[in-house]
Amino acid sequence: MASNKKVLLKVIILGDSSVGKTSLMNQYVNRKFSNQYKATIGADFLTKEVTIDDRTVTMQIWDTAGQERFQSLGVAFYRGADCCVLVFDVTAPNTFKSLDSWRDEFLIQAAPREPDNFPFVLLGNKVDLEPRAISAKRAQQWCQSKNSIPYFETSAKEGLNVEQAFLAIAKNALAQQNQTVDLYNEFPDQIKLSNAQRPNNGADACGC
């Protein structure tokens, strides 16, 4: 029975340096916000058990270094991801602008079977801070343009919306995994060819 098998969901968190990726992950897994940690070098991950629809799944959340020069290096573990979480800082417009390139890079490196339907979730972090530079509406517009990505506004510091966001992430990841498995069962071999066509997202697509 499939539901008894231990399920492992692999989630990747991407976004510019210091948007709060590590803090979000810590807040979610350890329920604390601390200042006692080093900048992420290379890659790191935490795991957490979650229950979704009576199923217990293990979420493996991968955190990465956000500095531009590491962008193409963390790619080894993108493969096999079930969901990709994009994070930006609502007070820093540049971190919002980079979202496209993070998404593109992920799609290229992870090469998911159906890039158009691969689950992403967008988090606008640090909503506890003022002044905001990116409005919820603008973020939502971006999500809309990318095939309706779910959007959450979070604060890792206050623990705001973090739980909900990760629950949604887990659900999406699980759905993706099930779908992949189904597909795989239906078409054993042929499907592997289909990642050739990928949407061409120029950098100018941002609707601002």
Binding site: K38, I41, G42, A43, V75, A76, R79
Partner: peptide, 18 residues
């Protein structure tokens, strides 16, 4: 496992400090 990339960066870049 695709491990080499993951471990070695932090080992090398910080000389094990992190």
């Amino acid at each position: 496992l695709g491990m080499m990339n993951m471990i070695s960066l932090s080992w090398f870049l910080t000389i094990f400090l992190c």
